[in-house]
Computed example of a mutant assay.
Amino acid sequence: MTAAPTLPAVEGRTDEHTRRARGWQTVVWNDPVNLMSYVVHVFRTYFGYPRERAERLMLAVHHDGHAVVAEGAREQMELHAQAMHDYGLWATVREAPE
């Protein structure tokens, strides 16, 4: 048996495979409406994060203006962002940096 030939790497390639390999992120943004305790509650309830992690993420949202709350496949990150919207939080999906 012979191995299948491999294609040479193409620098700067941004096809779907490359985007999937890098992954996606759900980002929660600071807002003037929700209490910090509520944001912790959402992170613990929806993501199942322990109190310490939920509080650390909430503080990043509060002090830095945003926090990455999940990373993974684009479809899953879109579901997470929609769930955050359903809880009344501001959230977006973005490609994970290289």
Score class of each variant (00 low, 15 high):
65 G>F: 00
57 L>T: 06
69 V>T: 02
70 A>M: 05
15 D>I: 07
11 E>S: 11
4 A>L: 15
81 A>F: 08
52 E>H: 11
86 D>N: 13
83 A>I: 03
62 H>S: 05
49 Y>L: 15
93 V>D: 01
37 S>I: 09
51 R>G: 08
76 Q>S: 05
41 H>M: 12
51 R>T: 14
55 E>T: 14
72 G>K: 06
21 A>W: 06
65 G>Y: 01
50 P>H: 08
43 F>S: 06
20 R>M: 14
10 V>Q: 15
80 H>I: 04
56 R>W: 13
38 Y>D: 02
87 Y>N: 03
67 A>Q: 02
71 E>W: 02
22 R>A: 14
22 R>S: 07
80 H>F: 08
70 A>T: 05
77 M>V: 04
65 G>M: 00
1 M>E: 10
25 Q>S: 12
24 W>P: 02
72 G>L: 04
94 R>C: 07
34 N>L: 12
51 R>P: 06
92 T>H: 04
58 M>Y: 07
82 Q>Y: 07
65 G>S: 03
96 A>M: 00
71 E>N: 06
57 L>F: 10
85 H>C: 03
1 M>K: 13
31 D>G: 11
18 T>D: 14
12 G>R: 09
53 R>Q: 12
86 D>K: 11
78 E>D: 11
69 V>L: 06
45 T>Y: 02
90 W>S: 13
19 R>V: 08
87 Y>H: 10
60 A>W: 01
